[in-house]
């Protein structure tokens, strides 16, 4: 493998990491409030509200049921409006966030469901406001589960980012498609796949170590 190829792959790794990490962060900024709203407005929730719960649920399911490749193409006008272009890694972040945020919302919601309802009741008995319950009880108590969710979301977003290579996104996915697929360079294809696997492994390993270190239950 020559110098040029190495540089290409290094760029690919950088771009993939950039897309994945930035998308995960933005997806969580949107997904956490969405997941919290869905959780607290549920039947047993602390701000029971059927209309809100139903609406949020519909919205999440709607986006979640759309195949990513279709979503990617469907929101091209929106992407152009937001970043001015539809190709490259920054442009890919837009559909990645749109696809991942509802996914993240569901992950957050299921993490919150693991919090012992008795603890929420105890917090209420001490005169906590709803807002205090959310940021002092629900989120901190669910933290290990939320962090584990981040790892799963990251791997999913990484997979999506590779798909975006088909429609002009950057990163390792684009390299695999442009060199490995269109130009029949099987070696490049294999290397990119191996790199993607490696990145996911790395995230998972390092992440789980952090999770178990921060979990006070063991």
């Amino acid at each position: 493998m020559n110098q040029q190829m190495m540089e290409l792959l290094a760029d690919g790794i950088r771009e993939t990491l950039y897309m994945t990490i930035v998308s995960t962060i933005i997806a969580y900024l949107a997904g956490i409030p969405l997941g919290v709203i869905s959780f607290v407005t549920d039947k047993q929730g602390i701000c029971k509200n059927r209309a809100v719960h139903f609406t949020v649920g519909i919205f999440i399911n709607l986006v979640r049921s759309m195949p990513f490749l279709i979503l990617l193409v469907a929101i091209i006008p929106f992407t152009r409006l937001l970043v001015g272009t539809t190709i490259g890694s920054t442009a890919t972040i837009v559909p990645l966030v749109v696809a991942a945020a509802p996914y993240v919302a569901r992950m957050v919601e299921s993490s919150l469901k693991e919090v012992n309802p008795g603890v929420i009741e105890a917090a209420m008995s001490m005169g906590s406001s709803r807002f205090q319950i959310i940021y002092k009880v629900l989120l901190p108590e669910a933290k290990p589960s939320l962090l584990a969710g981040v790892l799963i979301s990251m791997a999913t977003i990484l997979g999506y980012s590779a798909m975006a290579g088909f429609v002009g996104g950057g990163g390792l996915g684009a390299i695999a498609i442009n060199y490995g697929y269109y130009r029949y360079q099987t070696d490049i294809m294999l290397i990119t796949v191996a790199l993607l696997v490696l990145i996911v492994q790395l995230f998972q390993e390092v992440g789980m170590r952090i999770v178990s270190r921060t979990d006070r239950r063991r």
Binding site: N116, V119, E141
Partner: peptide, 23 residues
């Protein structure tokens, strides 16, 4: 008012209900 009143009424439970991520 209710929250203020609750601060004047402590409560303990069968399953303790401690915050597990806090010391």
């Amino acid at each position: 008012e209710l929250r203020t009143a609750r601060q004047k009424m402590g409560m303990i439970f069968q399953q303790f209900n401690l915050l597990e991520q806090r010391s």
